[in-house]
Design a protein around this nucleic acid. Structure first.
Lengths: 204, 204
DNA sequence: ACCTGAACACCGTTCAAGT
DNA sequence: ACCTGAACACCGTTCAAGT
């Protein structure tokens, strides 16, 4: 059998991506299998390997899409120019994106923790776009700092927020009564930026 | 077959733990299978289920051991009473433990990110012990702060360091020239604690 | 050129059967 | 009571064979 060409190569790629995204969003990354994708798109599992290198390639692609969505969401926030206020605003946007797409986001976090997963060009550029948003917001706090400090800070905060966000919701760790992961994230951003501002003050 | 009792239940548990630890340490968590453990300990895979609930139970146990080892290592550091110095010292100890046992540590990090994994009592107590070490070190920075602030800070820093540490070594993210993950960790701890100290100063 | 579906080499987990 | 090993219900990936 073969040569159905119900779909062009590109159509098929998009179909697989969309299907994989839905499976991850609803059932989680661990439920994503080539057989399940195959059934859902109406092709045999083998066909996926015609369009993607392997399952990890599909996952990479879905994560790139998720990251791009986040980046767009972050670009929408209204900024005041007051660093602490704006940092808070963009953090809230980040947290509500996570809350809206918990399983897609969990897949992204697992991705950044796995050395063996390829970083596709569009994954990298989506990440850069997200970094640029944050950099723009917190840059005012870095007046008088060496040029690279703000870039370093974005990366430190980004990875740190991943660490806090990936805690289980009911974690023993977070169990100080009445404290949510969102509180810990806010504490991190606040205290870190206060540290940056303190360093600026000392320079003057 | 059956009723060999070459080992008591406890001996068998220890044997399985030790074997699983070695497999994870050398080949990584994803290489740990019940069949492989079975072969290594000289029992059938089914026997593991006589001693542990399932493979996740074995993983939990190995992670508890790893956490206990870290906690012991942290307890060995020499403290000066100078917060910024001591925080730096204990961070270095944490980082060198990670470097010494990268795959065991990666398994612990994956554990804290997975909501579905059981937290055994000895895992929880090992984590508490590690937290207590860090709390003791950074407590002096929290003079005049509400009582819970230092506990919150330990948890924020812990999760944040997990986030940074779990970045792949060659990550795009960290690729600011000449910057290692250790540098990002140091930046986090320094800046965060400066933020805490700035808040203390403002209170006076 | 594209697609299938069987095959290969695995998994975790269960459980009847044996001692 | 303890242990085995076959069985069940899965995996990702490859590839000869078909159109």
């Amino acid at each position: 059998m073969a040569r159905r060409a119900d779909h062009s190569r590109d159509e098929l790629a998009k179909l697989i991506e969309k299907t994989a995204q839905e499976i991850i969003a609803v059932q989680g990354l661990s439920a994503l299998t080539t057989r399940k994708i195959g059934t859902a798109v109406g092709y045999s599992p083998g066909t996926i390997y015609n369009v993607f290198d392997d399952l990890d390639g599909v996952i990479s692609r879905v994560n790139a899409l998720t990251l791009k969505d986040l980046s767009h969401a972050l670009a929408q926030v209204h900024l005041t120019g007051e660093v602490m206020v704006d940092a808070h605003t963009i953090l809230q946007e980040y947290l509500s994106f996570q809350k809206a797409h918990p399983k897609l986001w969990a897949a992204v976090m697992l991705h950044s923790a796995r050395a063996d997963l390829r970083v596709s060009p569009d994954y990298a550029s989506a990440l850069d776009a997200a970094f640029a948003q944050v950099e723009h917001v917190i840059a005012p706090a870095f007046q008088g700092h060496p040029e690279n400090d703000v870039k370093t800070a974005v990366r430190v905060l980004w990875a740190s927020l991943q660490g806090i966000s990936s805690l289980p919701d009911d974690a023993e760790m977070v169990s100080l009564p009445g404290q949510s992961k969102a509180d810990l994230c806010a504490n991190l951003v606040d205290t870190y930026l206060q540290g940056v501002l303190a360093a600026s003050a000392r320079r003057r």
